[in-house]
Computed example of a mutant assay.
Amino acid sequence: MRDGTLGVAVIGTGRMGSDHVRRIDEVISGARVAAVVDLDGERAKGVAALVDGCAAYTDPAAAMAADDVDAVIIASPGPAHEAALLEAFARDLPVLCEKPLTPDAASALRVVEAETRLGHRRVQVGFMRRFDAEFGQLKAVLDGGGLGRTLMLHCTHRNASTPPGFTSRMTINDSVVHEADVTRWLLGQEITAVTVLRPAPSAAAPEGLSDPQLVLFETSGGAVVDVEIFVNCGFGYQVRCEAVGEHGTARAGDAHGLYVNAAGRWGGEIAQDYVVRFKDAYDREVQAWVDATRRGGVIGPSAWDGYAAAAVCEAGVRAQESGGRTAVTLAERPDLYRAADRS
């Protein structure tokens, strides 16, 4: 590191990658954007031009080989993640990898096995809800034991609309994947089975898209989790989770901001997308990654967590297609992740 500052290469300059470039340049302390990577060279140059001393690349390996790159953020499309992760492992570079770790359980397991061969963790997976203030408070309440054993979680995940080409499978792989991770994190249990119920589609759902859906998780500790996924609700972006315990309930995600009474009406604003709703969580997530990396450590969701979420999503897609309860199958967890996978 130059002068103690972490040089970061950001791979992928789409919406999430560009937002991370802005975040590191303007918000995060202890790091600088040393390089950006995109297959579209002109787009990479355009993003790099916004940051002093930032180089543009079209090849992730070339960026990782640069002398001033100490760590990597992977924000490219999911199918490109495995190759970038393995390249980072070959150079023993710390990585913050946006979800999904990889698009399927088999490739995610290969990443887990490759990291295990290194003998130490290098990956933090970008499940940003673990860094959201409300979800953190919910986790603390459940861990404190005051509500007794958690019996159920009621989850809501709504998007205003979907982009062209969004499919029913993507409701699981791109959206419910977050609830898969939140469930495992909040409860400290694995998800053992998935069922998907599909009501008649909303009139706002594009042709061929099953929307909304109700996803049910069963866990190794006997809890049941329901997830309402509604990706064309029309009015905004909402993510909530209510825990029902033996002695009470607690809920995160109401996101109460400014509350206005005027002109005969009362209410507030609903965020329109995840970048707005989880802005502070992303800031905390990246700052925590930078701080841990500068100390020589790794915190947060692990590659194992990314693999487990991928396995749950695979079972969820099969449950979508079959209409029946589908078991989740996991490989044996390596010792590398046993002590750290709940951090």
Rank of each mutant, 00 (worst) to 15 (best):
P60H: 01
R295A: 15
G257C: 07
Y337D: 00
H247M: 04
I11H: 07
D19S: 14
D291G: 01
T156I: 11
G46T: 09
E98I: 05
D25R: 10
L330H: 06
A339Q: 11
A88H: 03
I74R: 02
G267H: 02
V182T: 12
V72N: 00
W289K: 02
H20R: 05
F131P: 12
A205F: 05
V260P: 12
V95Q: 01
E179C: 15
D174V: 11
H120P: 07
R110V: 04
A48S: 05
E179F: 15
F217V: 07
H178F: 08
G145A: 02
L142Y: 01
Y337V: 00
K99R: 09
T116E: 08
E246M: 09
L85Q: 09
D59R: 10
L101Y: 08
A49F: 04
I172Q: 00
A180H: 06
G306P: 04
L93N: 00
P77G: 05
R265I: 06
Q287L: 06
I28V: 07
D52P: 10
G41C: 08
R158S: 07
R265S: 11
T329C: 14
K139A: 13
W266N: 14
R23I: 01
R333Y: 00
V21N: 13
C241T: 10
E179Y: 13
V225S: 02
Q124W: 14
G253E: 09
I191V: 09
V275A: 15
A308N: 02
D273Y: 12
G165M: 09
I299R: 03
P301A: 07
A180P: 08
